Computed example of a mutant assay.
Amino acid sequence: MTIVAAVDRDERDSKAVKQGIALAEAFDEPLHVVHVISQSEFREIEQSSVDRSGKTVPMDEIRERAREEAEKVAAETAEAYEAKGLVGDPADEIIDYADRVEARYICVGGRRRSVVGKALFGSVTQDVLLGTERPVVTTMRDGDDA
């Protein structure tokens, strides 16, 4: 089994990674830190990275960029982890990855949003919570504690 900590590029002091470390140590499980590049971000990268020959960036390179984002976040907090980069719908990719590695827990960060904000923009954390049978630990970002 594995502990999966999902992060985004806005997190530099990730509470999800810190919680993932605590769970990984408590259960003697490996920690995988995951960052997902959404399809819209992928298209932006793809369009901005067309070289002179008209070739687009290969999917493996995009996944590597996502893995590097996970690495940046995890390196500031964790000592032992495996960074993973995925491309697609963030909630779906996190859930699918957790299923593939038979995760014991999924750790995700949250932020306080209004009801209207959730309706308009959705919530990856909410989608993960509602979309998996696996235990999910959510943490609030600094300034969002209630």
Rank of each mutant, 00 (worst) to 15 (best):
C107H: 04
K15N: 02
G143N: 06
G54Y: 06
L86R: 04
E41S: 13
K72Q: 08
P90W: 03
D96S: 09
Y105P: 04
L130G: 09
V108W: 01
A70Q: 00
M1E: 11
R63T: 07
D51A: 11
V33A: 02
L120N: 11
H32E: 11
K18L: 12
E71S: 10
D127Q: 11
A80Q: 15
T139R: 03
G20W: 01
E11W: 09
A6H: 03
I21Y: 00
A26T: 14
V115H: 13
S48Q: 14
H35Q: 04
E68K: 15
F42T: 06
G117N: 10
S38K: 06
A83F: 11
D144Y: 12
Q47G: 09
I3F: 03
L120Y: 07
V34T: 03
E29G: 00
V34H: 01
R67L: 05
A66H: 09
E82R: 10
F27S: 08
A70W: 03
M1D: 11
D127S: 14
S114N: 13
K15Y: 03
S53K: 07
V33W: 00
S53L: 14
L129S: 09
S38H: 08
S38I: 04
I45S: 03
R9H: 15
A119K: 12
R12L: 07
H35L: 04
E76R: 15
G117M: 11
V34A: 03
R100S: 08
G54V: 07
E46K: 09
L129C: 13
G131Y: 07
G20P: 04
A119C: 02
V108A: 04
S123P: 07
A103L: 04
A91H: 07
E25T: 04
T125F: 01
I21R: 01
A119S: 13
R112F: 08
K55D: 12
E68D: 11
D142K: 11
I106F: 05
A70E: 04
F121P: 00
Q39L: 13
G110L: 02
M1C: 11
R111G: 10
R63K: 15
D96E: 15
F27K: 07
E133F: 06
M59T: 14
M140I: 04
V124H: 01
R112A: 12
G131T: 11
T2G: 01
G85M: 06
D127C: 07
L129M: 10
E69L: 10
I3W: 06
R112V: 15
K118P: 00
A80T: 10
Q47L: 14
R43L: 14
I37F: 09
